[in-house]
Design a protein around this nucleic acid. Structure first.
Lengths: 349, 349
DNA sequence: TAGAGCCTGGACAACGTTGTCAGCTGCGCG
DNA sequence: CGCGCAGCTGACAACGTTGTCCAGGCTCTA
């Protein structure tokens, strides 16, 4: 079999494609195995001269400690797992980054995976991470039954859920105030004179979607406005569906004069639909997004702080690992209404 | 010391906080260690009855295989590392996701980290990943000297660079056609009658920035337009600096009539500046971004395909791992000019 | 100068898994 | 009835590291 690896000088004491071990380093430096370990880990009790010899051998061989073996021995991996829905979604980028920063501050690496909103894949991923013995797990749930994590939690895997609560187990969870945020957003529209307000959101089996819907209903009820079925669209949020839903609400003899959208994907689609209409329709969206201020009009949104969600969750996770926590807790972060124009348009009937 | 772990029934044969091992499972099922291993790995040669007993013990104990030990034994981790600049940057989300999908298709997990454009942090991260014995590494370089990876590559870590070439080592690299894309974008502006065209880009020590600048110069030269220094801004791309640069280009007796921006962060800032000006200035930006079509006017861009970059790199990486590759290669992916209005505005002198 | 104590270094086991190999059982066939 | 074979099963070593513990040599003091 031809050797396809890039050829350089073959290293003494090591077979090709195999890495040098501490044993090799020890042999080359003429010291014992444990002495190498001490140097590599910066432990005390090695004379400068010995240390230098060991260091030279390390450099010469290109030795790098094998963390797998280390983990096996020490029990902790200094890595945490993040299971999220889709890394490509602009909402999760900052969240993931925030988790990473906290992990880094604790000397840990981040392993992450996308569940693609598929409960089975979520489970598969989470358990794969557990098999790798991550110290902790941050999960953005796709499914609604997380009992599969019970043995892991019992075995000491710190676990925090983010964005949506865990299903059927008692665990830490960090959420946005979806209900309050939606209620405020809809109340904002009502305050600007709207009564026929549409709501386009995700399937109510998703916790955040259900909460935002509840906020919409609460605001309407507070204002004494009976909600008509035709004003609500709850389901898949692919562009075609959302587009149809928006167009239906805007058609007919009594069209809605404002729309509240349940997440940023929906918001963007609705903006596209509204851009095609001549009549001015007010809009408030849940989730902020880049360039919302540059559109005409600027888009009023209920913003949640993705980075804060991630940071809070990760910090809580490391507090679990430090042994400082007892009972699982539910932490709710406030949302912020950002007015930019689209939510302040008056009703145009 | 109080036990702060959530309390459930203590498992027989395992200490609290310690996980059951195959040995524990074997003891409980009344079989040998190796038999458990066989069941866990789906190896043949186990009677259905034995398998059932083992499976029951596994479920009862909540056993999960320790992949660290497995890796130690087998040599491969089935995980790859991704070092990028910033996970929160919308350009890297899709790229990362694409790498993840390919990894998933090969049964591997993705570990990633952000270098924050800091060469030292890039190295620290990459080497930490190597210590964990990732099978391969996808690197978006922050630094320009990657000789520190030589021992790793020699030891068999598959390595692919993305978006920017590796520094001082010979390795696979997947790039966008930054030069060609920029040249086409600027030529597009020239074709619409512009001659005084500004260029705002990143520091030329960044490869992509240098290439795009080269594209700008080439297009200008092709058209026989001498470039004036006042038309170019090459440096940090924080909003304040970019804003100042744009405003300087637009002031004076002979202002630029069009601007070519070197990346999407710059583009967005320039859009904000232009929105404050009454005079219509043409704009073409490198990198596409969401909602570019909804602005007034729509923003003409040179789009690169982040997902394709990630996918191509990851596939190349796994081909290395499968042993099918010999010489490092440089792969360049085409860019695409997307016209939306801003790049087709005529000069307004 | 001898003894005590400290400092350095190394031998060895253990972490949890998998590969090797040998033993055991039961069955079929001569 | 005995032998061979196949199919299961388990004992054992090894992967590369770290923790424990002990040995040997040095220094310091009485």
């Amino acid at each position: 079999m031809p050797d396809t690896t890039r050829s350089t000088d073959r290293l003494p004491g090591t077979r090709y494609g195999n890495r040098p071990t501490m044993k090799d380093v020890a042999a080359r430096a003429g010291v014992g195995l444990k002495t190498v370990s001490r140097v590599v880990n910066g432990e005390p009790g090695v004379t400068p001269d010995t240390e230098r010899r060991v260091q030279e051998a390390i450099d010469a061989l290109g030795f790098r400690r094998n963390d797998s073996a280390r983990v096996l021995r020490k029990g902790r991996t200094a890595s945490i797992g993040l299971v999220l829905e889709d890394l490509a979604d602009p909402f999760y980028g900052p969240l993931s980054r925030a988790v990473e920063e906290v992990a880094r501050a604790h000397g840990a690496l981040l392993i992450n995976g996308s569940s693609a909103e598929d409960p089975e894949r979520e489970q598969e991923l989470a358990l794969a991470l557990c098999a790798r013995r991550v110290d902790g797990l941050v999960v953005i749930p796709a499914g609604d039954d997380h009992r599969y994590l019970e043995p892991e939690i019992r075995a000491g895997v710190a676990t925090v859920f983010v964005d949506r609560p865990a299903g059927r187990i008692d665990a830490d969870v960090v959420l946005s105030d979806n209900f309050g945020g939606a209620r405020d957003g809809v109340a904002h529209l009502i305050a600007h004179g709207h009564r026929r307000i549409g709501f386009i959101g995700d399937m109510p089996r998703i916790h955040t979607a259900a909460e935002r819907l509840r906020g919409y209903r609460a605001a309407m009820e507070d204002a004494g406005i009976p909600v008509e079925d035709a004003w609500m669209s709850l389901g898949q949020t692919n562009p075609e569906r959302v587009r149809r839903a928006a167009e239906e609400m805007l058609a007919g003899p009594e069209p809605v004069t404002a729309i509240f959208t349940g997440n940023n994907r929906v918001t963007v689609t609705v903006i596209r639909v509204l851009a095609e209409h001549s009549r001015r329709v007010a809009l408030v969206g849940f989730d902020d997004f880049e360039l919302a201020d540059l559109l005409q009009p600027g888009v009023t949104v209920v913003a949640q702080d993705a980075a804060a969600l991630g940071r809070t969750a990760a910090e809580r996770l490391f507090r679990q690992l430090d042994g400082g926590l007892v009972a699982p807790e539910r932490i709710e972060l406030p949302t912020r209404l950002i007015t930019r124009g689209s939510g302040e348009l008056p009703p145009a009937d």
